[in-house]
Design a protein around this nucleic acid. Structure first.
Ligand code: ZN
Ligand code: ZN
Ligand code: ZN
Ligand code: ZN
Lengths: 237, 237
DNA sequence: GTAGGTCAGTCTGACCCCC
DNA sequence: GGGGGTCAGACTGACCTAC
């Protein structure tokens, strides 16, 4: 039988035609976010983050300081980080191959050209010795030496741990019946099993792939972003 | 002070360069999905859904039957539905304005041209009397008469209801202290308040915008998709 | 001050239910 | 058979913490 899904190849993501609602709303949405009480959202001390007079060297949007060696906006910085981290290989699909416009309005039209421009503009994973000339090979060739990851923040870990402990203590048994007692599961947190894991990856975040009694916080809302990266790294190394 | 976020305008979403992992994995991911036990995932009776010999009239991908009047793939059908439903207005950003290639590999490059091609190919919101000639105006002009929405499926409502009842009965008080007793909240489910709501929208899914004691299932995993539509509709009518 | 982390918001398309 | 709903997976960028 044909496996249709295997044929797929394209892009996926967010190429904003309708970006998230503006900041004010985001602010509010943060305030009433599920349970987590985020500390310093929209910290007044940091409202001057954006350098309105210094353009992003990649897309000419307002920059937010230097990123990877050049003045860049949050968008391009994040894009570059993700691309390197996940070792993305983009392909320009335009007819005029590799000549797509990369400015604030078009930067999400072609990832290949955006990344190329990032590199040409001098972005460098080391954040130094950039300049714009021969700083190539950051993403494509083997020299890419992916940037170091730090794993979840301590605050995140604390929050997830708290959440897990709370759940473990409240619900006697998840649902099934062949589950080990939750108490033993709690212990497992501190006693990492022999699961191969990324060095930066806190042990208890390495979910045992098969077993059913998954700790709840491994299915965090929807942002397994970090965890996903680790998996990528693991499988690719 | 400048409200930077207000300036934003672009696209956001999934323009697949790295689409979700193939079907087999999706299948498995469904099987071990959080709590929900989805009934007939990958139903063997429906594996013949795809018409491998009939191309999508929009992008030439394999079609899955007629959608909105023409043979179309799931992607184009979904794209058309979302565009109409949310009354999206796309703008072609290419230099050769409005002449972007729309095929399987390029269909996510330009939403404006994809929608245009959907319409030109004869897609019609009524799903009938199409043909490809004068069936325009489906999205831009007033004749668009957005398709009718049905609201969440009964099965979904049942699931969410069950989930909510379970939560309400287990956890004594969410976390705060000025929350009304959960029991009263349960009652609110059956006794819709005077909140203006979409006719298709089950009353208890109309979250009271300001109050803190939000029923848990209003923050369902991440798929408020349907609910979002309703909000859109509400504000736009 | 910049590196890396977080996560709400948005989109895509395979797959499902139901008339 | 096709309409509409579902939702995992993927991405973006504003904002945050930490070194
Ligand atoms: Zn930029
Ligand atoms: Zn390009
Ligand atoms: Zn198509
Ligand atoms: Zn176009």
């Amino acid at each position: 039988m044909e496996q249709r899904r295997n044929e797929r190849a394209g892009e996926t993501g967010d190429p904003r035609e309708n970006p998230p609602t503006n900041g004010i709303i985001r602010h509010e949405s943060h305030m009433r976010k599920s349970g987590v009480n985020r500390p310093g959202i929209l910290n007044p001390d940091r409202l001057g983050r954006i350098l309105y007079d210094v353009p992003c060297k990649v897309c000419q949007d307002h920059s937010s300081g230097k990123h990877y060696g050049i003045f860049a906006c949050d968008g391009c910085a994040g894009f570059f980080k993700r691309s390197i981290r996940r070792q993305r290989q983009y392909v320009c699909k335009a007819k005029s191959e590799g000549r797509c416009v990369v400015d604030k309005t078009h930067r999400n039209q072609c990832r290949a050209c955006r990344l190329t421009k990032c590199i040409e503009a001098g972005m460098n994973k080391d954040g130094e010795n950039a300049g714009g000339t021969d700083s190539r090979c950051v993403c494509v060739c083997a020299r890419a030496a992916v940037q170091h990851e730090r794993g979840p923040r301590s605050s995140t870990l604390r929050r997830q741990m708290a959440l897990y402990l709370k759940e473990a203590s409240s619900s006697p048994a998840p649902a099934g019946d062949l589950n080990p007692a939750p108490s033993s599961t709690v212990l497992n947190l501190a006693v990492p099993k022999a699961i191969p894991r990324h060095p930066m990856m806190p042990a208890f975040l390495c979910a045992p792939p098969p077993p059913p009694p998954l700790p709840a916080f491994l299915k965090v809302r929807r942002s397994l972003t970090a965890a996903t990266h680790y998996v990528d790294t693991l499988t690719q190394v």
